[in-house]
Each structure stands twice: as C-alpha cells, then as structure tokens.
C-alpha cells in the first residue's frame, strides 16, 4: 500500500450562503521514499490539498490513508497526534519561535509528543542540527541566523520526530536564489537518506527538483 493514498478528496468551503468548492475529487498516491511536487497557480486548490494531506484539515468527502491510518474521519486531538507523529512541516516563512534557541525550536515536536526528557529532546535536536551543518549555530536564536540557515533549522525541526513524510510549502519563496539553492540541496540530501517529501510550489524550477509533479488547476488534477 502507498504511503499516501487519497481517493476522491473534495473540499467545500462555505462562505456565507455560497458553497465554494476548493477541491473537486482529487486522487493522490505517493510511495514511501518518493519526492513529489504539487504545483499549480494560486487559487488552484493546492494549498487546500496540502492542508488535507498534512492533516491540518479534514476533507468534505473522500478517503485518505496516511501510512496505513485512515485519516478522513479524524478530528481535533486525534488529528494533532497524527500530525505530530507522521508529518513534518516546513513553511515558506520558516515559522520558528523567535524567543527560543534553534535547538529548542527543533526539539518542539518532541515536547508535544511527550515521553522525552528535555535533555533527550535537545540531544536529538542538536544531532540533527550538526547533520544539517548548523552545529556552530546551536544556542543561537533564529534572528541571529540567515534566511537559508533558518529554513534549514525548520527542516531539522520537521525531521526530529522521524515522521512518515515531510510536507513542504514553498520552501524557497522567502529566500534569495543562493540560499534557495542551498535549501533545495538540503532537501535532496534528506530525500537521499530515505525520507518521503511532498513539496507544494508554484515555481517550476523548484518543482523540477522532485521526481514527479502533480499539477492542480481548478480543484482538480490537471496532468
């Protein structure tokens, strides 16, 4: 069975008295260890698809299995648990906690998972930061780092909980081309280490990094 198995996913938003369909029956399959890009213009529904694949939101209709678990019916607390265990998010704007050191930031998902001592969490976080070449930045706060470094901290944070997949949203959108290339290289390394990556982007150059692309337009898969 595929790692991601989404079938007939629809999502309808209710704006006042009008129903706005964002997704109209999308099928997505991603295998363990794949590197997939989801592309499409803004308003195409790719963000909505990402939210559903990332378990931040539930589909209005359709079936979604992630790593063998049926997600479609889960809400609230159960969904939070799945996010924590199976999904590692990387955002366009990094979304690091400004008042925490980068090692504390990276350790945060383990804090929410529970069962790890603070010492153990920070040990794992620091090991990951070392692996991603940020060892000399340990103990610093995000605002003391460059944009590229911050995004690599975010990658470390997404990996710390050993999730089933990384869900990446426009990872280079806030970076210059040099820092962007650096971050993309990091994703390549992470992928080569066996991780599954689903990347949402509208940038064709970025999408070219992936093994294949899923193109969304008007709430449907276009090609």
């Amino acid at each position: 069975m595929s790692l991601i198995n989404a079938h007939g996913i629809t999502k309808v938003y209710r704006l006042g008295r009008v129903d706005v369909p964002a997704l109209r029956g999308v099928d997505v399959q991603v295998e363990q260890g794949e590197y997939v890009a989801i592309t499409g213009p803004s308003g195409s529904g790719k963000s909505t698809l990402m939210h559903i694949l990332g378990c931040l939101d539930s589909p209005s209709d359709g079936e979604y299995h992630l790593d063998g678990a049926d997600i479609s019916a889960l809400r609230g607390r159960a969904l939070a648990r799945i996010r924590n265990q199976k999904v590692g998010f990387v955002f366009q704007t990094f979304n690091l906690m400004p008042r925490m050191t980068i090692d504390e930031n990276v350790a945060l998902p383990l804090q929410y998972r529970g069962g790890f001592s603070r010492r153990e969490r920070l040990k794992r976080a620091r090991a990951l930061l070392e692996r991603l070449g940020l060892g000399d930045r340990i103990g610093h706060r995000p605002d003391e780092l460059s944009g590229g470094e911050r995004q690599r901290v975010a990658v470390a944070r997404s990996l710390v909980g050993e999730p089933a997949m990384l869900l990446v949203d426009e990872p280079t959108g806030n970076l210059d081309s040099k820092a962007g290339a650096e971050v993309l290289r990091t994703f390549r390394e992470v992928h080569n280490a066996g991780n599954t990556i689903v990347m949402v982007t509208h940038d064709m150059h970025v999408a070219a990094e992936a093994q294949r692309s899923i193109h969304i337009a008007d709430g449907k898969i276009a090609a």
Partner: peptide
C-alpha cells in the same frame, strides 16, 4: 495566532 498555528502543525493539541 500564527505561532499557535505553527505549534498546532507541529502536533500541539487544543488542550496543550
């Protein structure tokens, strides 16, 4: 709000 959103994405429950 965004901070809470991020924390939720990382797995924080409403209770947390």
């Amino acid at each position: 709000v965004r901070e809470f959103g991020t924390r939720m994405a990382l797995g924080a429950t409403g209770m947390q």
